[in-house]
Design a protein around this nucleic acid. Structure first.
Lengths: 95, 95
DNA sequence: CGGTAATGTAAGCGATCGCTGACATTTGGA
DNA sequence: TCCAAATGTCAGCGATCGCTTACATTACCG
């Protein structure tokens, strides 16, 4: 599943946990965090620590794939293909 | 790329930023964080805020896919297929 | 119905976040 | 070589983290 927000990630975590028949306490112990923390993360806590999130995903067997593909991004960045060449040319021409 | 650690994520972010010919200051402004923060994240800061990380990935056009596939996970969780059934049976037998 | 487990909420605490601002170091072009 | 931009480092500050403990609220099965 594509995860764009903390809430998405929380939903994935909760789904996976339930599918594995784990309760929050058990998962918390396995990961090494408090049950409180699990609750907050499953509710989409924005400011959770990255490292702990990664630990939970690992414990649940969830693979995180960072795909640098800008096909349908709403905030599509610039092309970046030969901007450097263009800039170099502009620099040559001006000064 | 599969990202298991904060350092992995940092590397992905740095690579993508450089490929887009952005410097840290520019990216920081676009995302709404300090340059300091960008530096630390690119160095693999474990305790960065999840929400900010997601904002950077979005700004760079990096898609995050959370795949609940436990094929080659080293911390492969339990099967969870019919544990409930087994437990239910055990409960019936004991009390 | 009970009663137990699972989940959610609250308050208080030390530790650490991310920010600002200035300075050091590295990198790259003229 | 020399300069400027980019990157990295440091210190101090308010805000917030995640933890613990205790209590409330749902689920759920007999």
């Amino acid at each position: 599943m594509l995860t764009r927000t903390a809430a998405d990630l929380g939903a994935v975590i909760r789904d996976r946990r339930k599918r594995l028949k784990l309760d929050q306490s058990t998962l918390a112990k396995q990961v090494g965090v408090s049950r409180q923390w699990i609750i907050e993360v499953e509710h989409g806590h924005q400011r959770a620590e990255l490292g702990l999130i990664l630990r939970v995903l690992d414990a649940l067997g969830i693979k995180l794939d960072a795909d640098s593909n800008l096909s349908s991004g709403h905030a599509a960045p610039k092309s970046a293909v030969d901007l450097d060449a263009i800039v170099a040319k502009a620099k040559k021409g001006k000064p």
